[in-house]
Each structure stands twice: as C-alpha cells, then as structure tokens.
Write a protein that binds this DNA or RNA. Sequence first.
DNA 1: ATTGTTTATCGCAAATATACGATAAGTTTT
DNA 2: AAAACTTATCGTATATTTGCGATAAACAAT
Lengths: 111, 111
Amino acid sequence: MAYTSTDYKEDEIQMARFAKALSHPARIAIVKLLASMDTCFCGEIVEELPIAQATVSQHLKELKDSGLIQGCIEPPKIRYCIEPENWKKAQKLFSDFWQQSYLSHPQNQTV
Amino acid sequence: MAYTSTDYKEDEIQMARFAKALSHPARIAIVKLLASMDTCFCGEIVEELPIAQATVSQHLKELKDSGLIQGCIEPPKIRYCIEPENWKKAQKLFSDFWQQSYLSHPQNQTV
DNA sequence: ATTGTTTATCGCAAATATACGATAAGTTTT
DNA sequence: AAAACTTATCGTATATTTGCGATAAACAAT
C-alpha cells in the first residue's frame, strides 16, 4: 500500500476500492446472495458458505466499508442488503472502464 | 486464503481473480494507459506513475497473470496490450454481476 | 567485445489480508 | 433475572501484498 490520495486519480482509487471489495470469492458469493434478496441475514449467509461465522462477519464488514452493502438492524438480527447509490456508482465505473478499451471500438471487432 | 476450487463456483473464483488484478490504483492506471493504446512500453508506464520501475514491473506481472493483459517482445522493449479474450470475459462477468441486482429490475427503480 | 538500453527478478522490510476460536454485546424469550 | 439467539470484535497465526534498491538477463548499437 502506502499510496497517497494525490498519486492517483480519485476515480481510479474509488474503483480500486470497489475491486478490492470484490477480490475474494467469498465476498462475490455474499454479494450475489444479497443481490438475489433471498438471503439477507448473517446466519443465512454462514450456512451457504464454507467458512466460519467470524470470517463471514469480517467479510461483511469489508463489504460495508467499501460501501457496496449496508446493514439495518432488525432485532435480534441484522438484515444486509445492497447500498443502491454506491452500487450504481460502481456499476458505472466498471462499465466505463471495460468500455474504454479500443476493443470496444467498431473498427477493432474481430468478426 | 486457503479456499479450494470446490468451495466456490468457478465463475466467482474467476471474477474474484479479475477483481483482485484491479484492486490497486496503480494497476487500474496501467490498464487505462494500455487501453488507450498511447502507452505500451514498461518505460513509458513508469514515467506516468509515481512508483519505481521494479514496482511497475511487478504490477505488470500480476496483470499478466490475471490474463487481462499480455506482452509481446519488440526487442529491446516489450509492448504490453490488452488480452482481448479475457478482457471480454471479464467485461461480461462484471456486467452480469452488476446487472443481477434487484436494483436493475424496473419495479425497483427509484425514479 | 564492450557499452548502453530495457525489463525481469531477487532479497528484504513493512503492511495487509485471511481465517478461526473465544468471547463480548445486544436483543428476545422464558 | 436468566437463558437463548444473533452478530461483532478480539487475539492470534499464517500467508500475501506492496514497495524498492540492487542486480541479472536479453538484446542493440558501437
């Protein structure tokens, strides 16, 4: 690490943050579960994944810190779901990113 | 660490691999440069980034290992560019991923 | 052959990430 | 108030990542 906020563009830093949040299969799996709306409580996620509760909780924290998900308290549980604003922000960042390649330009299509 | 290939779905593992490759601002910046086709040699990338040559080379190696970029030898230099097949594969994985959310369903649009 | 150019690799230090058991904290139920 | 339930946090071990200087490796130019 040890890169400062001035070294890179803000968009690059933000996108790297989102990418980092998704850089582990467990977190991809968790977000997919949340996106499906079927599974929203920590306990349900623990049942789906091959890792311990403490580890799931840690992954949830990282996803929360990235802004991609949020949790609201529904005693005695906590319901997790996608954070709409950041989800859209990330969606756009990545969409633009993949698009930007010259591969996306018509004249470079390998038909 | 220490997750085996059977613990998670192959798509999730593959997507996490791509995400990990993009989980650092320097690597985002490098790929953006390559995507623009303006800058393709290691030396040129070093000039653009606030990190040492050895570090850039290391980031390039990680990007190569992820499959997102490739390098072809043009003595005495090495020209880096995007690897089209994996680029498209990643583009689709991420596109589907962001799309999958219930947020993308019409009835959930906050107009 | 020697020198210069370009990039990769080695070796190391410091920082982060991953995983889990144990335990705390908060809430509900009894 | 006590017991049960759900999730977060602590402490710790191990692995990985990041960064850089030094150096090697591969090739071109002289």
